[in-house]
Amino acid sequence: MPENTQEGFIDQQKVLDNEEYSIKNTQSIIQKAVDWFRARSMFVLAYGTGCGAIEMPPIFTSRYDIERLGVVGVATPRQADILIVSGYCSYKTLKRVIRSYEQMNEPKYVIGLGSCTINGGMYWDSYNTIKKLDEYLPVDMYINGCMPRPEALIEGFVKLQDNIRNAKSEAGYIQYRENNAFYRANQEKIFGKNTTPTFEENFAGMNQ
């Protein structure tokens, strides 16, 4: 894992450049088949956090018809494989986003939609939105633009499917599991003790 910067920001470019981490083509035959199925069928929990959310519904309509790619929307995080965080994320929303993410079952992937998830976008100096989503949740696919068109979102899905099918990058959920302390620390910077139930700690008493 490349060095984290002082605020804990992972330099995505370094990840991509680093041979060791970016490409892992060591799938066994079985794992290949498994990954093929995972790429072929994606259940999406579309969390409309910001204004970019308005670009999500069109991909399910007859004009864009993302169901062709095996992508379906679901209502509950338990069944979802993919979490779309669509745009800026206020602190209050972030808590719910993290909660939903933690309730999803592995393997799970996060798509950050819009510039706001990358660097804060036009909310770069806002007092109550997060700037870099990657500090709090491991993002597997960024789609930039403000706001990105549905075509861009579909492109993102295709790229993500390609990544999953060929194991092109380490899935975010593994990072989240292994570097949980890092993400926890960042989350706690915002929420303090009043954070979501953690992986290790017991639920009791955490939700005052």
């Binding site: 969390y47 509950t76 995080p77 338990r78 808590k95 719910r96 986003v97 909660r99 939903s100 309730q103 079952n105 979501t196 139930p197 017991n202 639920f203 009791a204 939700n207």
Partner: peptide, 18 residues
């Protein structure tokens, strides 16, 4: 099958009920 840690760990629209 991973057992939930708490009875209140239900999917409740992102909320954590108590």
């Amino acid at each position: 099958a991973v057992k939930v840690r708490d009875r209140y760990d239900i999917s409740y629209c992102g909320e954590t009920p108590d």
